[in-house]
């Protein structure tokens, strides 16, 4: 059970949040122009990284805001948290 530092509310228990999977998957602006393969790539294919992963979380039972997290999926250590639209940390 993580402690998550919501960028809007501060530190809260994990039970207030939901995970939303891989981050920075941009919904194609013109889906109709994509091939079936390209669309499937967006829709289903995932990096599913073991190690440092950029992912999305939402403070469901709080401010309901989505934000991004950098987390090491091999040991669940949270490395950074940043708002939607912000640049991911490089280090």
């Amino acid at each position: 059970m993580f402690v998550i530092n919501c960028p809007y509310c501060g530190e809260r228990e994990q039970s207030e949040f939901k995970a939303g999977g891989e981050a920075h998957l941009v919904r194609p602006k013109q889906p109709t122009e994509l091939s079936d393969d390209e669309w499937a790539e967006y829709l289903f294919m995932r990096k599913n990284i073991k190690g440092i992963q950029f992912e999305r979380w939402v403070h469901t039972h709080g401010c309901r805001k989505w934000f991004n997290m950098v987390r090491d999926t091999s040991n669940d250590k949270i490395k950074a948290i940043y708002k939607m639209g912000e640049k991911p940390p490089t280090k």
Binding site: K18, V26, R56, W66, M84, G85
Partner: peptide, 13 residues
């Protein structure tokens, strides 16, 4: 509601 918020905040801010 969760899904709509998701699109609103992350795809169509």
């Amino acid at each position: 509601l969760g899904k709509l918020e998701d699109y609103l905040q992350t795809e169509w801010p």
